[in-house]
Amino acid sequence: MELKSLYREIVNEHNLRPSHKAAIENPDLVLRGVNPSCGDDISLQLKFEGDVISDAGFVGTGCAISQASADIMIDNIIGLNKEEALKQAELFMSMIKGEALSEIQFDELGEASALQDISHMPARVKCAELGWRTMKEMVEKNN
């Protein structure tokens, strides 16, 4: 997908009207994720019921791609258990690094798979990764 279409069709919606860009009540885990070179700076919050992510939110600032990607990520992971969330993060990272995914793997990523063309924009890969990377770090640390 051409970059401008990517903004118009996916990124803008999640950047300008995010569903999860707000603090959640009584989060179990909070972690700050930063891309020092561009100033993307988010704080990701997760709440668990047992092993399952029951709620999540983020606050922060950054480019449209970083913010939209974090919002899409949260859409995806609510309702997943830790293992499933980590598996999604790994899939997303593979896709964004330009590795070939199967049809089934794309389906698993849902809307996040629309960001796959960012793999052709090396300067923006870190932006797209930020939310996912932060989530992975939080869950791994507390697994």
């Binding site: 051409e2 970059l3 401008k4 903004y7 070179s37 561009c38 100033g39 950054g62 480019c63 449209a64 791609i65 924009m121 300067a123 923006r124 932006c127």
Partner: peptide, 28 residues
């Protein structure tokens, strides 16, 4: 609009500009 988005979008039209902290973070 974040400067990185500005720069990426201009790049689509073949326009090269810089975005970021320009190696001058204390000034930012």
């Amino acid at each position: 609009v974040h400067p990185h988005d500005v720069s990426s979008i201009l790049n689509e039209d073949g326009v090269c500009i810089r975005a970021g902290h320009h190696c001058a973070q204390p000034l930012m």
